[in-house]
Design a protein around this nucleic acid. Structure first.
Lengths: 316, 316
DNA sequence: TTGAAAGCGATACCAT
DNA sequence: ATGGTATCGCTTTCAA
């Protein structure tokens, strides 16, 4: 591979002058510029980006950790991030994690190794306290409520949306909603927040048999509902379903249609197309906006900022 | 920032030995290893990834050029790519293009500059002949039918699906379908292929007023259909709609529902959830599989391979 | 087993 | 305006 010294030699100038030409610096004679540019073209030379990165000490890349890409929650977030990176010199590297702690630690290690100029956690398997040990290595932001943890965050005040939704459910006379979650109570702050907010308004926790986790897709929603209907012989003991996404909610609805039963009240989340199409009320967590703000936070390296947006219940 | 020489000095060994320890090489005494590892921990040292890349001459990154991320076509492709990169040492960099030729050339220039070890074009604004000038700088693969062009490709034989769909339409007695496209005939090979296949089966091109382009979203589908219904006073002169995506098709359907008119036959594409929910027949282009194969193609640097998968019409 | 030194390919300071 | 040289931080070869 031809490098800057080859150009220097062939043009009769030094590498320093070639570098000046490459970067459109001042203090280069017209003649030198002309000659060097000719040689560059002739040898089809392009400066090595990695060498530049090494010299500048920055990678120009921001890593985005995603548990999975298929889920609308994460793809909406990613979307917001990519859109706002578009007009900046930063590039976005997708870092799939599957919530695996080891993976996440590897990525954080790579931040320490300066492979990234910053990292965005759209969600995390490791604890926030563990995460906070890495903030000294570069800008990190997470997209969930950090609670007391000293971690920069841009997140939705989900409880605001939950509260609105639960009040609405209550007003509709609902007494025993069922819940569909991605991850169980012990593992997920979001699950805890949902149930805690529910208890605040309904005065008690739902019984275990009305709570399912590991539900992330349309199929999951369908299957879980189908199982419930099966085991309860079409006479479910719940009178509403609170799900973790519109797509999942669509699966729930589909199961009812298959059983030819009138569906109970169903609430989705994320304001997705599926929910819109089926007229399912939803909770909008403003994911694209959060993605955009998260990107800004790391790219501008705002120190320790914690920003929140209120989620909103959307009736349709 | 502490570097390998700091570790060398402090440990009393040379940088070469430290490097051996870092990379788990042989020929290092247990003592040296122990001492050096202690110093590494003590100084909280991590080797600089960019310096490694420079030394190794590879970036370990593959760029994926996407016109826009929101569109299901591209996110499905991206998904397939990311999933198959998961178990490899490669990382995926998202390169948004908005079909802008200049942008795409910049990205290709970055390949030449060794910022990427390879590039995947999910679609392209520049011509394939222009693109082919860059294949010498590293593995490039595109996800559209390259025709005669000497560009590595992994793509769907879309015409297979189109043919099945058009035969079905014909069998249903359809005479004058309308078309919704992302990009106009002149700019898009896909649009041309669709209409050429149509002509092959129906014996003629559709008149211009029954063809719309710049349609990519649910809203676009809705608006275009609404306009048609408005201008034709609810008595459209077409008897089917062939759209470029299930989501768009959903918008079409919604417009009919708003007008309280029985919808004509509608065909979507990409086998998306929206189409499944609404029972809209679709054409499956196997995007996730194509993404996976495209990734394999560049990461394994298969020279000039051209692979195709047959699209399939899916009735529901 | 260990280390000195030469890459890798740029940038930037300091002379001239 | 130009060039020599040090620097970024690591890997690898060759000798010892």
């Amino acid at each position: 591979m031809t490098n800057i010294h080859d150009i220097a030699k062939k043009s009769g100038y030094s590498a320093a002058t070639v570098s000046r030409v490459l970067n459109n610096r001042k203090h280069v004679s017209t003649k030198a510029r002309t000659v060097i540019e000719a040689v560059i073209r002739e040898m089809d030379y392009a400066p090595n980006e990695i060498a530049r990165d090494l010299s500048s000490g920055k990678s120009g890349r921001i890593g985005v950790i995603l548990p999975h890409v298929a889920h609308p929650f994460f793809s909406q977030l990613l979307n917001g991030i990519i859109s706002s990176a578009f007009s900046t010199p930063y590039q976005i590297v997708v870092l799939p994690s599957e919530y695996d702690r080891e993976r996440e630690l590897e990525y954080l290690e790579q931040l320490k190794r300066r492979a990234f100029d910053g990292i965005i956690f759209t969600s995390h398997g490791i604890s926030l306290s563990e995460l906070s040990r890495f903030v000294k290595y570069g800008p990190i932001v997470c997209c969930e409520d950090p609670g007391k943890a000293q971690v920069p965050a841009v997140y939705a005040r989900r409880d605001m949306g939950y509260r609105e939704a639960f009040f609405w459910l209550k007003a509709q006379g609902v007494l025993r909603p069922a819940f569909l979650f991605s991850r169980p109570y012990e593992k997920s702050a979001t699950t805890r927040l949902t149930l805690d907010t529910y208890r605040e308004i309904f005065g008690q926790m739902p019984p275990e048999h009305r709570v399912a986790s590991q539900i992330t897709t349309y199929e999951d929603g369908y299957r879980q509902t189908d199982n419930w209907l099966k085991s309860q012989a079409g006479r479910p003991d719940y009178d509403a379903v609170f799900s973790n996404g519109d797509t999942v909610a669509a699966g729930v609805l589909a199961a009812y249609q298959k059983w030819q039963l009138p569906p109970p009240l169903i609430i989705g989340q994320e304001n997705e197309l599926a929910g819109q199409l089926l007229g399912i009320p939803t909770i909008d967590h403003h994911l694209d906006k959060i993605g955009a703000l998260a990107f800004r936070s790391v790219s501008e390296n705002k120190p320790g900022a914690q920003v929140s947006l209120d989620s909103r219940f959307v009736l349709r």
